[in-house]
Amino acid sequence: MSNKALAPAIEGWHTMGDQPRLIGTRCCDCGTYFFPKQNDYCKNPDCDSSEFEEVELSRSGELWSYTNASYKPPAPFVAADPFEPFAIAAVQLEKEQMTVLGQVAGGIGVEQLKIGMPMELVLETLHETDDEIKVTWKWKPVTA
């Protein structure tokens, strides 16, 4: 059993713990959400705000589409040896009106996925370094 510390693969993009959430920002003027975070300029063409607040995004959404990676992606992806294929999901968040990509939780293949099914955010290992386990967000069917 590894006693390495858990650390986010990308710092500040999601909360840690059992009920993880992505961290984005929201325009204080028009209410547009941004993930990854946007703190400098609002991309809504009808808004010229530069004020943003950090917000945690919805933990769950609806599966917009899905696929998998049958072959090892190139660096900077760090692949396990041997490479384990994984599924990938695009999930639509209702409140934020946006779609976010991510790997699907380990052990769940495309044959278990269906467009429209409810998905929730979990944290799992992306890869390990010498002294840390780098975790990232993944999507998991709510019913699984």
Partner: peptide
């Protein structure tokens, strides 16, 4: 990694 958000009014 994500789409734009269409949460703002009129978008």
């Amino acid at each position: 990694i994500a789409t734009d958000s269409a949460a703002a009014v009129g978008i």
